[in-house]
Amino acid sequence: PGGSDLKTLAKQVNTAYLKNLSMTKKRARSILSGKTSSTSPFVIYDVDTLWKAESGLVWSQLAPGAPLTKEIGVHVFYRCQCTTVETVRELTEFAKCIPGFVDLFLNDQVTLLKYGVHEAIFAMLPSLMNKDGLLVANGKGFVTREFLRSLRKPFSEIMEPKFEFAVKFNALELDDSDLALFVAAIILCGDRPGLMNVKQVEQSQDNILQALDLHLQANHSDSVYLFPKLLQKMADLRQLVTENAQLVQKIKKTESETSLHPLLQEIYKDMY
């Protein structure tokens, strides 16, 4: 495709991203830096503030479908699941708007989502994070990293690797238009296990990657190695997802009272 086609593609992907993903990096950064006119997020830093947040201050309802639990680690685990499930729903709608995606076999669309959504989520999570914590509940709450670290094992191990990734990833200073193409490239990945039409997926991903490369040259002209750095981040994200899947398996095995949302069960089953 020529330059103007790639620009059109970048624009389509960017529009789809802004339309379907509820929290943009732009909005998150303005909340985190206190530059927004809306009220600052409620800070959750211990058990008391968590229950205050749960009593309607931050979340309007208890984690839907999650059984009531007094154990704080388990509770946080359910909250993570709720957010993940909601984001998978948004990512699915985003994927459908990426040119070429709906032309794929339905089974290939499923495969791409199964393997891609967690990588995509961990690529978007840094937008909500700084080194001290992360925004939750659509920006209404801020959970401190220290609080998440203080949970008992294995729950304390859920978010820390994502913070470590986020600090490095945020140094690249991507904006929503870069992230839109980056996330689209993650979803349209040709080497997911079990794809029926690899060529077709590779062709779509290739177009997205070319659009991303061109977009970065214009949007980050001072950062020459940004494109290869992002390709490396894709590999890092795959590793992060593998570790996350192992941790979820461990929680399932050792924490017999916890349950996994049916959608997440589907995604994790026979994943890696």
Binding site: G65, V85, E86, V88, R89, L106, N107, L113, L263
Partner: peptide, 20 residues
């Protein structure tokens, strides 16, 4: 197909929120 029932559902319905 049965193995990924909810993903199929999400891909095919744009309005149904799926019972979360």
């Amino acid at each position: 197909k049965e193995k990924h029932k909810i993903l199929h559902q999400l891909l095919q319905n744009s309005t149904s929120p799926v019972d979360l």
